[in-house]
């Protein structure tokens, strides 16, 4: 680990100002990913600005019936919150399927969103990686591809985003609130993370100095059932090969609304808008679910080492939707 200066800011503007001023500064929240990446020297900040006490660690009701989650809320608290469990079960399930009890106690909401890919080449400083060193090349695209993306990847990067929570938030149409050097802004979660294109070093659309202060959830639909299904190599304590966050609203045998996001398949939580469009207004049947999954995955461009993710994602989408349909009955 490169030596660094540790600072604790008292106010958001001061923290933002420091980060803008110092070319190699970084925000520290729970540290579960950052400290690890620093030890591996994947990232080498000179200054760490501890922001855990700067942002809220509370979950608050919004006037419209939604919830505002402070950026410093630990993952475990968010998963256990009775309101989240009741109104947004998909979010609680996604959080609980990620990491371990110990990690969820340390990790924060903001930090979870900004965790970096676990691509083994990204984490190994002795192999080329465009995300770590732009222009050095992608080792994964012709390497070990099991955990890599099948949707939205580029020749420069085939990494996947590791968060489960973000997949659920994408399906829930969450909005991220951000403080920055110029002004505060609100970013729909589905637009927070980028596809790699030719700049895989940039995971998100955040500008230098911007700090996530919270996440807002819109009010849930009363008739909507939601669920998170994670498929992985080990029964627990593993990243997703494929995950599905789905919310389904069915009336009289017809899909009124469907919101689906996929994890483990792309550089960002993958909102399955094509599948959603196919489902809306369609009969709530296995056939519709199969059609919707197929439509979404028509855009998949798997590598030889992860081609299995296409049928896996299809089957997991279909079975998750069927389970929601079963619940709705």
């Amino acid at each position: 680990m490169r030596p660094f200066r540790y600072e604790r800011a008292d106010e958001v503007p001061a923290a933002v100002a420091t980060l803008v001023k110092e070319p190699e500064a970084a925000y520290l929240a729970g540290g579960t990913n950052l400290v690890d990446l620093m030890r591996l020297e994947v990232t080498t900040p000179e200054v760490l600005i501890d922001v855990r006490r700067l942002t809220s660690d509370r979950i608050e009701e919004l006037p419209d019936g939604g919830l505002r989650i402070g950026a410093a809320v630990p993952n475990s608290d968010l998963a256990a919150d009775p309101r989240v469990r009741r109104r947004y079960p998909v979010l609680s399930q996604a959080l609980l399927s990620g990491a371990s009890g110990q990690l969820r106690n340390l990790a924060t909401t903001g930090g979870n969103l900004l965790q970096r890919t676990r691509c083994p080449y990204f984490q190994n400083v002795t192999t080329p990686c465009n995300k770590r060193i732009p222009g050095s090349g992608c080792s994964a695209v012709n390497g070990y591809q099991r955990d890599m993306a099948i949707l939205g990847a580029s020749p420069a990067c085939v990494a996947t985003h590791p968060s489960d929570m973000a997949v659920a938030l994408a399906a829930l149409d969450a909005v991220v609130t951000v403080a920055g050097p110029v002004a505060e802004r609100r970013i729909p979660l589905a637009q927070l993370h980028r596809l790699p294109e030719d700049a895989p070093d940039r995971d998100t659309v955040l500008e230098r100095g911007e700090l996530i202060t919270g996440v807002e959830l819109p009010p849930p639909h009363a008739a909507t059932r939601s669920r998170y299904r994670k498929v992985r190599d080990r029964a627990s304590y593993a990243f997703a090969l494929v995950s599905v966050a789905a919310a389904l609203e069915v009336t009289d045998g017809t899909v009124r609304d469907a919101r689906i996001a996929l994890g483990g398949v792309a550089h960002k939580p993958w909102r399955a808008i094509t599948a959603e469009a196919v489902l809306r207004g369609a009969p709530a049947t296995r056939e519709s679910f199969v059609d919707a999954a197929a439509a979404e995955l028509a855009a998949a461009r798997p590598l030889p080492g992860n081609a299995f993710k296409v049928p896996l994602a299809r089957n997991t989408m279909v079975s998750t939707l069927l389970e929601l349909l079963e619940q709705a009955r």
Partner: peptide
Amino acid sequence: GRRILGCLALAVA
């Protein structure tokens, strides 16, 4: 009072 991982927690924090 909460279980965490000591290897990922900086002492200064």
